[in-house]
Write a protein that binds this DNA or RNA. Structure first.
Length: 287
DNA sequence: AACGGGGACAACCGCCGGGGC
DNA sequence: TGCCCCGGCGGTTGTCCCCGT
């Protein structure tokens, strides 16, 4: 057996963070800057392990974090990037600077993945057989189309965060704490935010494409969950667009199509309203 | 009003890679 | 070269809250 988890030490507190703890942590970081997490519990007296402190800061206390509803644009970004990168939440989060990887991961797992599953059930109930490998694209297209068409039907969704009296109370206090640091962050040349090297990441995505070629051949089911869908779109995209393949997906939109031709096509086909335009305006990786 | 189920989110766990010694 | 420590990441779990009955 390996060594015990760092948070298993006696006296280490677990569970939700209190506003008092947040203030202590924020005050310390404001003074010393993020990093050297090991010394944080020691120097602050917080009964938390260093990892817990880092996580709390990264996901909730760091200035500039946007909480609550994901906009259709953000959702489109997530779908786009998940399809491109797979479950590289940190990488995806780097394209949505106001969102944390944890937030995105949760959103994917609780909203998008579920929708895909339900759609698969609907497909089965309509007796639609899984398509052969070479015709997957159309079906994935419709799956995503369905996701978007259902996008505004989230009765609870993230808005619950704001509607819930308790959570909003504490959320606002967290927000206030974050604001304390905004000025400091603006002047900081190297914000604590994880800084993913996009080129490297996209290179990784390109590598992943190659992996998918291998995976595809041995795949047991044509779809299991969102991950497969995403990865397969990457595969399909590679087959479709050699330009993107050779350039590591960061292709000049003027000279070559973006790697999500299919995805965008069905979006248009399905007439998804303003969300489509928003998705088409995705600014970063294709320009 | 009480209760149970399900959804959403915060937090933890385990693994991995990089850097220092 | 190997070991240890630390930070980062993705998956999973625990808890709270809402909603329907």
């Amino acid at each position: 057996m390996g060594r015990p988890p760092c948070c298993d030490k006696i006296g280490i507190k677990k569970g939700p963070w209190t506003p008092e703890e947040d203030i202590i942590l924020v005050s310390y970081i404001q003074e010393h800057g993020p990093g050297n997490w090991r010394s944080v519990p020691t120097n602050t007296g917080l009964m938390r392990c260093s990892k817990s402190c880092r996580l709390r800061w990264t996901n909730y206390l760091r200035p500039g974090i946007k909480r609550g509803n994901f906009t259709p644009h953000e959702e489109g970004m997530i779908i786009h990037l998940q399809a491109l990168l797979g479950n590289k939440w940190a990488a995806i989060a780097s394209y949505l600077p106001q969102r944390t990887d944890n937030d995105i991961k949760n959103y994917w797992n609780t909203h998008l993945k579920k929708k895909l599953k339900k759609f698969q059930t609907d497909l089965d109930s309509h007796n639609l057989a899984p398509p052969p490998d070479n015709s997957r694209t159309t079906n994935y297209d419709h799956q995503f189309s369905w996701q978007f068409s259902d996008n505004n039907n989230n009765k609870q969704g993230s808005s619950k965060l704001f509607n819930s009296p308790n959570s909003s109370l504490y959320a606002s206090s967290t927000e206030n704490i974050s604001r304390l640091l905004e000025g400091w962050m603006r002047s900081s040349p190297n914000p604590s935010r994880r800084n993913v090297d996009h080129d490297e990441m996209l290179h990784e995505a390109q590598k992943n494409n190659q992996d998918q070629e291998f995976v595809k051949s041995g795949e047991k089911s044509w779809i299991q969950d969102g991950e497969n869908i995403g990865n397969n779109i990457v595969t399909i995209t590679k087959e479709k667009s050699t330009t993107c393949e050779s350039s590591g997906v960061v292709a000049d939109q003027k000279t070559s199509p973006p790697p999500f031709t299919y995805l965008e096509k069905w979006l248009l086909d399905e007439n998804n309203g303003g969300q489509v335009e928003e998705l088409m305006e995705l600014p970063m990786i294709f320009t």
